[in-house]
Design a protein around this nucleic acid. Structure first.
Lengths: 219, 219
DNA sequence: TTGGATGCTAAACGCACGTTCAGTATCACG
DNA sequence: CGTGATACTGAACGTGCGTTTAGCATCCAA
């Protein structure tokens, strides 16, 4: 990790400070003077180097995105999708970038869009591979399932404090994750319902009003 | 529905306008002058009646919370947990209040905490009942499963635009919901994994580092 | 009738914050 | 040396916005 604050160009220090602030407080709530302060420079310099707060954000977006996708391409076994698992076992290393991206997803940044697209794409590939080799159950809509699993991952990592508190913890953290791991895996291997009454009912209901958008695949 | 804008007290009109703005744009981004405008009053009157923007929010919180919990207690078959199903079949009626609460959950309002607590509590009751009568599979941690299901519901309703776009839609809406309904139900009745290798591995891993927070229940 | 609440407005105040502006130091280069 | 260009600062500017204030009706009680 290259987090030594000096011996870096002021531009880089500002960028890093901005990433940290955006990740922690979000774009709106962070003010340039605070970013400048943690970067050890004046507020004017931020504008001097980046032109505007908005352009500073887009530079941060690109930077974080580049780190994360390069990390995913890093000859890792199964690409970016393992970011989640990786994050669980090694939260320190990329926590900042992941947190930044989660914020970006909330705020619907262009970078978040390409990040999410990559996640969904890789997730879908993994699902198709798993279904092909029999380790995963076939689905009526693999694309939607991929989106659903990414949604669940993102939701878990951005878990609202109120829900964390309902589990008895102050806020989201490794202990919450550990607590949810087993129920999540149980859900993903057994499901929850003992019979398929609800599923059949839903299929019937959807057949009645066939506002069809989803592709037809085998089940 | 009582949405006629006149023939209501100015206080009520301001409160309703604020609820609409907070639900649509969030607390930070809505400014009092806009609220005053849609309420048809001056900005000063908002302060005159509510003292501050923050106290206006808390009044809105209480109001929406009261509507939602009274709706849940309304001799409905299974209480607030059906808000989700209710919302799906009848999105117009309580869309505003639900959207308001989703925003409140994001912003971690006290009202959101009690709302979430109620959701989790009712969810847990339903799970226990379902497990008892055999319609649901037993879980190693019912509380965590309840939190997980609420998390999934909330996440679905607040689905980030980037994920909706990955499904081919502009943003979250009824069509996205329809698209996700089947995969969700498939996941909740069959699970995803064909075998329980991942689950066993996770159990083993958690046994190694028994940072025990979760209660022991039957499986 | 008077006098004080109450409902309400327009204007102003004050602060936070993004951005601009002079002005200084330093370094490159002719 | 001189002459830019570049890095940087402190102060100021402008604006958006929450809030305050002064004032005007209206209505009710004494």
């Amino acid at each position: 990790m290259c987090s030594a604050s000096s011996d870096l160009t002021a531009q880089a220090r500002i960028r890093n400070a901005a990433i940290a602030h955006f990740a922690r407080d979000g774009f709106q709530k962070t003010n340039l003077r605070a970013v400048a302060a943690t970067a050890g420079v004046s507020a004017g310099l931020v504008i001097h180097h980046f032109g505007s707060k908005e352009r500073l954000r887009s530079v941060c977006d690109d930077h974080v995105l580049r780190i994360l996708v390069q990390r995913a391409g890093d000859a890792r076994p199964s690409g970016m999708r393992d970011l989640f698992r990786e994050y669980l076992s090694n939260p320190e290393e990329y926590r900042l970038q992941v947190q930044y991206m989660l914020r970006a997803i909330e705020e619907d940044t262009p970078a978040a869009a390409t990040f999410v697209d990559t996640l969904v794409e890789e997730s879908e590939e993994i699902l198709r591979a798993g279904i092909a080799d029999g380790t995963m159950r076939p689905s009526s809509d693999v694309r939607a399932l991929a989106v659903l699993s990414v949604l669940h991952s993102v939701a878990t990592l951005t878990m609202p404090p109120a829900l964390a508190r309902a589990l008895g913890h102050e806020r989201f953290g490794p202990d919450v994750l550990r607590r949810l791991a087993l129920p999540t895996l149980e859900l993903y291997t057994h499901g929850l319902f003992a019979d398929d009454a609800a599923l059949k009912a839903a299929r019937a209901a959807l057949d009645e009003s066939p506002q069809d958008e989803s592709p037809q695949e085998e089940e």
